[in-house]
């Protein structure tokens, strides 16, 4: 379970984002919906321990992340959190499989990578360099890298941001499918994809109460 408690983030340009308290339950998929700049990605980065909140706490499974050092947060991220970045964060000059095997540096077992790549339909590309892949294929590699370590929490920042709707929808379906049983928090501005998630959080209304923002079953597409 992930608890967001009184989190406030102030950036160097003095932009301030204040989050209402939120709770993300284990095993559910959440879609964070909202306009650009409302703080969706920032929240994911705070949960992942990449950014530290200026104020407030993020508690994951009872452990207060703000009481941990940066190396401890890095360790938690590599062990328990699968993060799918908007711009993939893949090494272009390296092959698909090497981009996944990079996790071995931290002792992560990546032997399931071929199976995962197969499930995502890109197994035949495993030796191809990232720079030779399409946007959709890169997104699938990023998903495979995030999931190969069998994380309990999956964070996806605009996983369809670089894709057209058809491919994006396919990627979301696959992401939700392979993330079943885990906590999935995906950021997107495309509400047509909401139907694939258990819960939808409207980040534009962060000042409202959490229960008001979440509608079981997702938003309608119209």
């Amino acid at each position: 379970m992930i608890e967001i408690k009184g989190v406030k983030k102030q950036f160097q340009n003095e932009t301030v984002i204040e989050y209402k308290d939120m709770v993300f339950e284990d095993g559910k998929s959440y879609m964070l919906l909202g306009a650009s700049g409302c703080g969706k990605s920032t929240l994911l980065n705070i949960i992942a321990g990449i950014l530290s909140p200026t104020k407030g706490n993020v508690v994951i499974d009872g452990e207060n992340m703000q009481e941990k050092s940066q190396p401890q947060r890095d360790k938690l991220r590599i062990k328990q959190i699968g993060y799918i970045f908007q711009d993939f964060k893949l090494i272009n000059e390296m092959s698909v499989i090497d981009n996944i095997n990079i996790l071995r540096l931290e002792g992560i077992n990546t032997k399931d990578a071929p199976e995962l790549l197969n499930k995502l339909g890109i197994l035949e590309k495993k030796k191809s360099k990232i720079k030779h892949l399409s946007g959709g294929q890169k997104q699938r590699v990023a998903i495979a890298r995030a999931l190969v370590k069998k994380p309990q929490i999956i964070l996806a920042d605009e996983p369809t941001g670089n894709l057209n709707f058809t491919i994006g929808e396919q990627v979301i379906k696959e992401l939700v499918d392979v993330s079943r049983g885990k906590t999935l928090i995906a950021v997107t501005h495309d509400d047509r994809l909401a139907k694939y998630f258990d819960c939808v959080v409207d980040m534009n209304e962060m000042t409202s109460g959490m229960q008001d923002l979440v509608r079981e079953g997702g938003l309608s597409n119209d």
Partner: peptide
């Protein structure tokens, strides 16, 4: 860029240094 990328996916600076 590569170092930042590795840090973002959770590779510790200790391992990056060693690499």
């Amino acid at each position: 860029k590569e170092i930042s990328l590795m840090r973002l996916i959770g590779i510790s600076m200790k391992k990056i240094n060693l690499l």
